[in-house]
């Protein structure tokens, strides 16, 4: 019980501190977003700027995310092997 009260107190204190210190305004000029929304259709031909972003400007992100999905599937298959299953190799 005491541990839970301590955890609640810690979380509330951290929340209040972060909310109170969140006063610095973010900058209004977004250079990457402005460049992409201006030039995405001219450079890639795709009118959806999000697709142009994750397939052209940030394509390593998509590539290694697909690789990570494959790794997680390998982990799921490897960790759920029980002995004596007839569906295994």
């Amino acid at each position: 019980m005491r541990r839970r009260v301590l955890a609640v107190l810690m979380c509330i204190v951290c929340f209040v501190v972060i909310i109170a210190s969140n006063k610095v305004p973010t900058s209004d000029d977004l250079p990457i977003a402005t460049y992409i929304t201006k030039n995405a259709f001219a450079e890639t031909g795709a009118s959806n700027a999000v697709t142009a972003t994750y397939l052209f400007y940030r394509y390593y992100d998509t590539l290694f995310e697909a690789l990570m999905l494959l790794f997680s599937i390998i982990a799921v298959i490897y960790m759920s092997i029980h002995e004596g299953d007839k569906y295994d190799e």
Partner: peptide, 15 residues
Amino acid sequence: PIGADLNAYAYVADP
């Protein structure tokens, strides 16, 4: 952020 001419809008969502 979907469209051929996004320069016409003043506020476009960040893609």
